[in-house]
Design a protein around this nucleic acid. Sequence first.
DNA 1: CGGGTTTAGTAATGCGGTTTACTAAACGCG
DNA 2: CGCGTTTAGTAAACCGCATTACTAAACCCG
Lengths: 352, 352
Amino acid sequence: MPASLKDVAKEAGVSPATVSRHLNGSLELPKETRERIETVVRRLGYRPNPHARRLSLGRSDTITLIVPDIANPFFAVLAATVERAASARGMIVQFHATSNLEEREIAVLRLAADHRSDGVVFCTNRKPGPDVAQALDALPRAVIVDEAVPGAHAPQIFSDNAQGGFLAGAHLARAGHRRVAYLGGDPALMSTRLRADGLEQGLRAASGGDAVNVRVLSGLHDVTSGRALAAELIDAEGDETAIFVGSDEIAIGVIETLRARGVRIPADMSLVSFDGARALHLYDPPITAVRQPAAKMGERAVELLLDGDWDDHALPDLVEHLPVELIERASVAAPRTKPTEDNETIQPDRGD
Amino acid sequence: MPASLKDVAKEAGVSPATVSRHLNGSLELPKETRERIETVVRRLGYRPNPHARRLSLGRSDTITLIVPDIANPFFAVLAATVERAASARGMIVQFHATSNLEEREIAVLRLAADHRSDGVVFCTNRKPGPDVAQALDALPRAVIVDEAVPGAHAPQIFSDNAQGGFLAGAHLARAGHRRVAYLGGDPALMSTRLRADGLEQGLRAASGGDAVNVRVLSGLHDVTSGRALAAELIDAEGDETAIFVGSDEIAIGVIETLRARGVRIPADMSLVSFDGARALHLYDPPITAVRQPAAKMGERAVELLLDGDWDDHALPDLVEHLPVELIERASVAAPRTKPTEDNETIQPDRGD
DNA sequence: CGGGTTTAGTAATGCGGTTTACTAAACGCG
DNA sequence: CGCGTTTAGTAAACCGCATTACTAAACCCG
C-alpha cells in the first residue's frame, strides 16, 4: 500500500491536516517543520490519492473528449492538441468514441457529469437530437466543436464552413466548372448546409453570371459512405463536372469508386476535399482541399474550457468560426469540353 | 447537487448500506423493498459518485493508454480499438501522449499508478531507459505494445517485425533488388533490429545466392526524420535501389524528399513502408507496405488486461507476435539496369 | 503583570460510497 | 413453548484527503 497523508503525518510528528495544508500551500510553516514534512514525503514517496482528492474537492482535474471516431485523422489531430493543451495545464484527458450513436453520446455525456469532469469537448458528426442538447446543458463546462448541436447552450467552435465552401466554389468556377456535386453528411447538419451554400455562392461569384448548379448528396462521414455517394452520383448520370466532398473520409471512398469506374481525376471529374488532415499532397493526383484548423480547434476548446470566464453569462453564446485555407493541388482542372457519347463508355482501369 | 446514496436511503426508508448492497447485488431483498428503492433511485435520478466508489474500492474502472502521439494514424487506430474494447467492458479510457519524452513516459506511468488504473497499455517509439521499466513494473497490470521495454516485466504484444522485414526483403529481392536501405528508428530498438535483420534475410532468401546488402539509417518515427533520412541516403550516393522504411510517417518524409530531389518511385527507387495505417493505396504511386495489425494489437492488449489471468505467474513473460501482411502495390519495380560495376564487394565507400 | 496578538498548529467533519459484522424480528418445528 | 434458523435489514468502520473552526503556547507591549 502506498503511503497516505496519515502515514506522513505520523512520521513527521504532526497532524494530517498540517501536512495537507502545507502541501496545498494553505499553511505557512516554520522552516524546520516544513523540512521535516518534506523529508518524510520524499522518503515515503508520498503521492496524494487522486480519488480521495476528487471526492473531497468535487472536481476531477480531468477533461473529457468525446468524438465519433478517434481513428479519423481529423479527430486524431484534434485529440492530440486537446491532450497537449490539457496536460500542459495539469489536466488528464479521458476520451470516448461514440461511433455517432446518439445513445452513446448521451451515455458518455452523463458519465462526464458523474465524473465531475472539469470540461467536456464534444464532437459529433450526426444531427444530435434534443436529448443530447439536454445532456450537454447539464454539464457545468462543455464546448461544442466541429458540428452544431441545436438547442445546446454552450460555446461552439467551428471551422468556417461557409468560407470553406465559398473558396472551393470559387476555385472550381475559376477552373471553369459550373455544375458541382456536394457529397457530404446529413443535410440537416449545419456544416452540410453552410458548405453547400458556400459552394454555390463561391461558384456564382466566380463564374461571371453563368448559371451554376449544386447537387447535394448526403450520407455519413466515412469511407463506405464516400463509395456509395460516388456510385450514386455516377449512376445518376448528371452533368456535374466536379465533386466537393465534406471530409477526407468521403474523399477516399470517392476516389476509390471513381477509379474503379474509370473516371479520371481531374480529367473527367475534378475533386476538392474538406478536412486536409490526411496526406493528400501525396495522393494520385494530389487532392485540392479546404484545410480545417483541427489543431487550433482543439487548442481553442481547451483554452475556453480552462481559461474561459465561466461566470460570464454570455460565454455559452459564443460561436467562433476559425479560418480555413484552400490548398490548391492537382485534382482540379478545367472540365472536359462537351461530353461526347463515345467517351461516356466505361472502360475499367487496371484493377489495383 | 445530485442525489447521494444517503438521499435515496432516506427517501426509501432504509439505511444507506441497504441501498448500496442492493444496487451491487450483495443483498437479496423482498420485492416490496426492492421496488421502493428502485422507484426512489429513478425518481431522484441517482447515479453513484464514481470518485467515492473508486476511493472505497481502490480501483478505477479505467484503463490508461499511453502513446507517443495520438495523431499518428497507427496509434490512432490502436486507440480506437482500445477504446472500443474497453468501453465494451464498461471501462473508461484515459490517454496520454508522451511525445516520446522519457520524463513524460515516467510521469504518466506514475499517474496511472496513482489512479489505480485497472490496466495500462504502454507504447513507445524510443528506447526506454531502466526508469521506465521500473515505473512499468510498479503497476499491477500493464501490457507493452508495439515496442519492447528492456527490463520490464509485463506481457508484450508486437507485430511480427522479423516476418515483416522478411516479407519486404523477399519481395524486393524477387523484383531484382540486392542493395536496400532501411530507414527507421533508433538502432537500439527491438523493432529496428528485427526488421533490418528480417529484411536482410528476406533479401538473401529470394536472391538466389547473390550478395545482398542492407544499409541502416536511423532517426525518429516521424515525417521530419523521414525527410532527413532520405536526404542523408541520397547524399551518401550509395547504390541502394530500394528503401524499406520503418513507418508510414517516415515514408511520407521520404516520398516528399525523393520527389523534391527528382528521384522517381519506383523507376529510380523502390519503396516499401511499414505500418499501412494510412491510405497508401491512393498515393502516387500506391505504396507497397507491410501492414501492422494495429487494431488487433489494441484489442488483444485490452483482452489481456481485463480477461487475462493475472494470478498466473507466467503472464508477464508472455510475448505475442501478431502476424503482418505484405500489401503489394506499385512502389516496387525492378531496379534500373545500370552499368554493373563489380567493385561493390570490396569498396565500403561510395560506388561512383 | 495582564491582556491582546501572533504563531503553530489540531480536532472534527464531510465528500459518497463499500463492506463486515451484527441484530431484531419472524418463522419453523419438535 | 422454547430454541434454532431465516429473513431483513443496520451500525459502524473504513477509503484518503480537504477544510473550517478552533486552541494552546509564545510573544509583545504598555
